[in-house]
Amino acid sequence: MDDLKRPTLDSDFTCDMAFNKITKWAQKNSLWLLAYGTGCGAIELSPTMTSRYDWSRLGIRGSATPRQADLLLITGYLSTKTLKRVIRSYEQMQDPKYVIGFGSCTINGGMYYDSYNTIKQLDLYIPVDVYINGCMPRPEAVLSGLAYLKDKIGDKKADGWIKYKQNFEWYRENQKKILKSFNGDNMPDKYNW
């Protein structure tokens, strides 16, 4: 983690428009999420979106494709097989984009800490803006995580997507360590392939 560059908002990635007041407000209050139901955590999304908790009142709604999504939810453990899909989906999303790691598995492997086939630490592979811990996190925790992300966007701190771009080689290297046949699986070497 040490050789990771901290994101800088200069050069290509600075923008006066993306973080001015209106757009900041809009980005904060309109989060379309791509719920990647990788693990058991996805079960918690249904109560979060239905009548009891109703995340749509926070401006959150699901979207079917990564092209329109702002937020990628990694709900639980990732196997090496699903990691490929996650990377692919993440890279198809359009900037600015955010990732929420959901449950303990994304932080340290959780109960799969010694599994040979599971990703232990998600932010080695894609940048994570917010972690929601717990196994499982309850809808309340999910909502508070989302609220935290909104604040973070408001404070211009949700900059994982810049980090990913600026440290792209580093992320790719990590990804390639796990995914042995990276190009054999037709994984792209470039960003926005």
Partner: peptide, 17 residues
Amino acid sequence: IYKIGQLDIYTAGEYVT
């Protein structure tokens, strides 16, 4: 505006050739 390749489409994460 990025011009992207013809395979870079939404395929539910599945990779296609």
